[in-house]
């Protein structure tokens, strides 16, 4: 990697790392796991940087983050290793303590793939096709996962009591 390419890489990391971390957190609910996934994706991106188009770097890192988090949860590793978050601290803006706990608990109830699909579609604002490419599944699967995820959340909000369930999934 030339000096210029390494500088570009560092600039990319500085610029995008925060957003990638938030996306990863929404997918898994644990800041430590989110950071591990982001770091892993960026280390792999470094190796591929000289052969990666800048405009495809984002999709590349998202793909690694999403699939590593989904794979971990399917293997059960995440379930064993997860660390339960500290009690939430001061809230920001209009969001209350209860809002956050409720949101985290609701997301924790979603299966990992549904959750990742919703994050890509509605947090990252990606199209169905782009989401399918990142999740390495068909367009039809993204559509059905989206519908099922929305349905699950709707049912949770209508019927469930989230008290004390603000744990990552």
């Amino acid at each position: 990697m030339t000096p210029e390419q390494e500088v570009e890489f560092c600039e990319y990391v500085e610029a995008r790392r925060g957003a990638l971390l938030r996306t990863a957190f929404l997918m898994c609910g644990d800041w430590h796991r989110a950071e591990d996934a982001v770091q892993t994706s960026l280390v792999k991106l470094y190796s591929a940087w000289t052969r990666t188009r800048r405009d495809s770097a984002e999709a590349y890192t998202r793909r690694i983050i999403a699939n590593s988090l989904i794979d971990e949860s399917r293997r059960g590793w995440f379930r064993r290793e997860r660390s339960f978050a500290e009690p939430p601290g001061p809230t920001a803006g209009e969001h209350t303590h209860d809002d956050r706990l409720t949101a985290v608990a609701a997301l924790a109830r979603l299966p990992p793939r549904q959750r990742a699909t919703l994050v890509l579609r509605f947090w990252e604002d990606l199209s169905v096709e782009e989401s399918a490419r990142i999740l390495r599944c068909s367009v039809g699967t993204v559509k059905s996962q989206t519908a099922r995820g929305l349905q699950t959340l709707r049912a949770l909000y209508e019927n469930a009591d989230f008290t004390g369930q603000g744990a990552p999934s």
């Binding site: 938030r22 957190f25 929404l26 609910g29 939430p88 601290g89 001061p90 809230t91 920001a92 803006g93 969001h95 809002d99 956050r100 409720t102 949101a103 985290v104 609701a106 997301l107 994050v119 509605f122 947090w123 959340l153």
Partner: peptide, 9 residues
């Protein structure tokens, strides 16, 4: 919902 989940620093 996502914004609420990210409300923590």
């Amino acid at each position: 919902l996502f914004t609420s989940a990210l409300a923590d620093p």
